[in-house]
Nucleic acid binder design. Structure first.
Length: 308
DNA sequence: CAGTGGCCCTGTCTGC
DNA sequence: TGCAGACAGGGCCACT
């Protein structure tokens, strides 16, 4: 599925192949694909037709193309689990799950949104914030991703240690850090030798820094692997993780040996999905308080504290 | 208000 | 062979 490295690969492809083009028409083939555009397909077309795709931007797994010349709005895309943005010849055969197609005034190419499960979709949204850092409304409330030069490491470490939840849940939520999915969360936790259920509050500063370094290393390695299959004209997002799946150490490898210590990898149910970890490298926390449990024990408040 | 869990969607795979 | 059910999972939203 498209993860941050794949989305970045798509962004680079769009930057090269559709920025500067002017929209001539949009055809919505499946209404669910534009459900986030609340004003409906006619409004979407009205805002898009005649606009120039001025740039290609990304935060986490969100992509957006600011609309020129005003740049007060942007075409926002989220690929969900199975979304693809394809740039192809307008007369090439329709894909089985083609949801929307955008034609340009030069008619040389067409931008298509293809999505089997339609968890993702397209919308036109206002850009909010200062001009230099403007992001679409849907993106405004999520944290920067770890590949962002302006990502605030100190804030990540501080905020993580205040969270009253498990590490993996904190990584997957979008308010602390964005762009991390189930695969990269498991891989980063394995690399940092941390259990997915470890209370975030129990993390020391150095441990939190190690976790962030692991996240960055995993994302960077995946981006390097994902970038290799890129074609300038055909912006492709594979249904699989591409070359990087050969580099996975724990994800999807239940029962197979840990690359570090050969202990069989275990799979745990987690939020109606799965969590993969090495029982030996990533031992369960000593006090595995159930989610939502009172963490006062972990915090160990001093006796007779003067605090209220 | 931060944390939690259910739901959306469809194709693929497994097991009976 | 056919069918039912599990599974994949990011983000939203209604709860506590």
């Amino acid at each position: 599925m498209p993860e941050l490295p794949e989305v970045e690969t798509v962004r680079r492809g769009l930057e090269r192949s559709v920025t500067g083009r002017t929209v001539a028409r949009i055809e919505v083939c499946h209404p669910r694909a534009i459900r986030r555009h609340l004003a409906g397909p006619d409004d979407l077309a009205g805002r898009l037709v005649g606009a120039t795709l001025a740039a290609a931007c990304r935060r986490g797994k969100y992509l957006w193309l600011p609309l020129g010349p005003d740049r007060t709005e942007a075409l926002v895309a989220h690929l969900g689990m199975s979304g693809q943005l394809l740039v192809c010849a307008p007369d090439s055969p329709a894909e089985a799950h083609l949801r929307a197609r955008i034609g340009f005034t030069d008619a040389e190419r067409e931008l298509r949104y293809v999505d089997q499960r339609t968890f993702g979709g397209l919308a036109v949204e206002p850009l909010v914030g200062d001009a230099a850092t403007a992001v679409p409304r849907a993106v405004a409330h999520i944290a920067r991703d770890p590949m962002d030069p302006a990502f605030d490491e100190a804030a990540f470490v501080r905020t993580l240690r205040q969270r009253r939840t498990g590490l993996k849940r904190a990584l997957l939520g979008q308010t602390l850090v964005s762009g991390i999915g189930n695969i990269y969360a498991d891989e980063a936790l394995w690399a940092a030798r941390l259990h997915w259920a470890r209370p975030a509050q129990s993390m020391t500063r150095p441990a939190a820094e190690r976790l962030l370094a692991a996240v960055r290393a995993v994302l960077a390695a995946a981006l390097a692997a994902g970038g290799t299959s890129f074609d300038a004209l055909y912006v492709q997002v594979n249904g699989q993780s591409g070359a990087f799946d050969q580099s996975l150490n724990v994800y999807g490898r239940a029962g197979r040996p840990c690359p570090r210590c050969a202990t069989p990898i275990r799979r745990d149910p987690f939020m109606n999905r799965s969590s993969f970890s090495c029982p030996r490298c990533q031992p369960r926390p000593r006090d595995p308080a159930p989610p939502g449990d009172d963490r006062a024990r972990v915090a160990k408040p001093a006796k007779r504290s003067a605090m209220p």
